[in-house]
Structures are given as structure tokens and as C-alpha cells.
Amino acid sequence: MARFSLKPGVTAALAATTLLVLAACSDPGAAAAPASGPATSAAGVKQFNLSPEQNREAAAVDPAAAALVPEAIKKDGKLTVAVSPFAAPLAVYATDNKTPVGNEVDIAVALAQTLGLEADIVPTAWADWPLGVESGKYEAVLSNVTVTEERKLKFDFASYRDDKLGFYTKSDSSISKVESAPDVAGKRVIVGSGTNQESILLRWDEENKKNGLPAVEFQYYDDDSASSLALQSGRADLTFGPNATAAFKAASDAKTKLVGLVDGGWPLKASIAATTKKGNGFAAAAQAGLNHLIEDGSYAKILDRWGLSAEAVPKSELNPAGLPKK
């Protein structure tokens, strides 16, 4: 049975990459699980397991997928996977402040197990993973990496989640849905400057103004506390950012609710994928392993455990269409 190990020696400099793990989509409205899923209190607050003891269910080996693993990777029996543990529920340090836990870690461990390997999880600054993969230091990256056509020039991908952005409002708000541009007309929306979500919101705002609808009031905050205070005090109507972290926060404190999901590359679909070195053959093994996890139900359990079921994919795709070059 595959084992899970962790490489020590992470420097304090990694903390500066906290927001970059979100693949250039900052989350102005979100803060940073027992194996069967998070427990829910009477108040609707879910308790996620952030302890080092994750009690994961072992994934079964898929011989067909394991046979696709390149010899250069399987020879030491390990799969070295880079993660950036700075954004729950994707990846974050556990309560011992040294063990990475979260959805990306669980997917990496399960993928390694289904390929008959041991997951060697390496905490990595977001800015360092590309060079690490190219040099062979990391055999895969599971760190909320969005597939783009530019990245496909250097890396291969096996998708495992949809890239989703979420509109959230306070839990007692009368706002019930945000599906298209008219739904944000005249609203006060918190969004991250220079992000994909800001670009989408700007296009929606322009569409509204052309149609004679009220303009969006864009609000920008430097930290999550100020953003949360603005929303809860009624100074803002909505936040718009990466769904994963906002969903975790909403489940953890029940103070906000999801009212709309938008593809991260709107109007195009965007995929989150396991990232590997171009042409080394491992992406095909990763795709087969991920599809095995999807088929046997392990994948759904992992996403449910971390509150990410809304981002599930029906199957892993090898080098899916990426967002175009800007």
C-alpha cells in the first residue's frame, strides 16, 4: 500500500505567495475534514478537519493506470508532488503548522496510491513550481493551476476540477441569484484588482451601461477582514472571487451564501489540472488514475469533504482546451 510522506524544510519566504496559489485570481471575500466529510453544527457551520491526522481512506491501485507511469518516475516508488499550502480548502498547513492538508493534498495522495506510488508532498511557493517541474524536481503539481494555451507550451495537464468563480453575499441578503450581467447592475461588488474576476465584471458592467442599466460600484480591499466587514455591515452587496476559498469560508462561519457561479475563463470554460513536464508521459498516467478515482467514487468523497462538489468534473481530460494567450 502506498504511504504518505512529507519533505521538511519550508522557509518563511513562502508566506509571501499566499494569494498567488489562486492562479492569479485573488479572493477578496474569503479567509484562509473528518474523512467522511465535514460535520455540521445546528447553526449550519461545518467543522473541517485541519489536524495533521487526516484519517484518509486508502485508494485502490489501478493496474492499468499504474502501467502508464514512466519508468523514470516509478523507479523510486514515489510521486513527488508540489503544493502551495496557503489557501484552505485547497491546501493549508494543519494545526501543527507544518503538515499540508486540504483538497489538493488529498487528490495528490489518492492519485499516487491508485498509481501504486507513495505521495511525497512538497510545500512549494507558487512562483517556484514552473521551474521545479521543468527541472524534474517535482513530478507533478497540484496547486489550483489553471490550464492555459501558453502553459501548454511547457507542460502537460490532466484536469481534475472546474475553475469556478463565485458571487457571495451575506447569508440574510435578499439577493438570491447572479447569473448574468443584469444581475449585478447597480450592485456594490467587492473584487480583486487586476484579476480574472475583475475583467469579467468590467465586461458585464460595460454591457449593462450600453443597455441603459445602472453601473456596478467596484470596491477594492487590501485584506479579507476589511472585505468581510464591508459585506456584513451592508456597505457592499456582493463579493466576486475564486469559489473554492469563498465556499470554505461560507461553510465555516455560515455568514455568507453562494448566489452565483461563473466559469473562471468566462465566457470560456477553465480547467484546473495536475501539471507535469511536457512530453515525459506522466500526464497520461495521471489522467487514467484520476478517472479511476472518479469512477470508484473516491474523487467525489474528497471534493465533498472539502466542500468543493460544485467544481467536480465528470472525467479527467488530457491537455484540455486552455485559456487563450492574452
Rank of each mutant, 00 (worst) to 15 (best):
S176A: 12
A42G: 11
D62S: 08
T148G: 04
A158S: 01
E317P: 06
G281T: 09
S233H: 11
L238N: 02
E150N: 13
L115N: 00
W129R: 03
P63D: 08
L293R: 00
Q113S: 12
A12N: 10
V81Y: 04
L293N: 01
A66Y: 02
T17Y: 15
R203E: 13
A58H: 15
I302N: 07
S135K: 07
A286V: 05
V145F: 05
T124Q: 10
V147M: 08
A108C: 04
P123M: 00
R235H: 07
I302C: 09
K301W: 12
I107Y: 01
G116F: 01
T146M: 08
T114E: 02
L115I: 03
L261C: 09
Q219V: 08
G212D: 01
Q232D: 13
A185S: 06
P85C: 05
A33S: 13
V81S: 04
S135R: 06
K209L: 10
Q113T: 07
P38F: 13
A108H: 01
S298P: 04
K164H: 13
G136C: 14
G264K: 00
T17L: 12
S143A: 14
E207M: 15
F155R: 01
F218V: 10
V191P: 00
S159Q: 02
D304W: 08
D205H: 05
P89D: 07
S173E: 06
D76V: 06
K177Y: 15
S135F: 05
V21P: 09
V101H: 00
F240A: 06
I107W: 01
L323C: 08
V69T: 07
P314D: 06
D62H: 03
F240W: 08
E207T: 12
F282W: 01
P38G: 14
N49Q: 12
T114F: 03
V259G: 09
T169N: 03
P242L: 09
K210F: 03
G265Y: 01
P89R: 04
A42M: 15
A33K: 05
V101Q: 00
A24R: 10
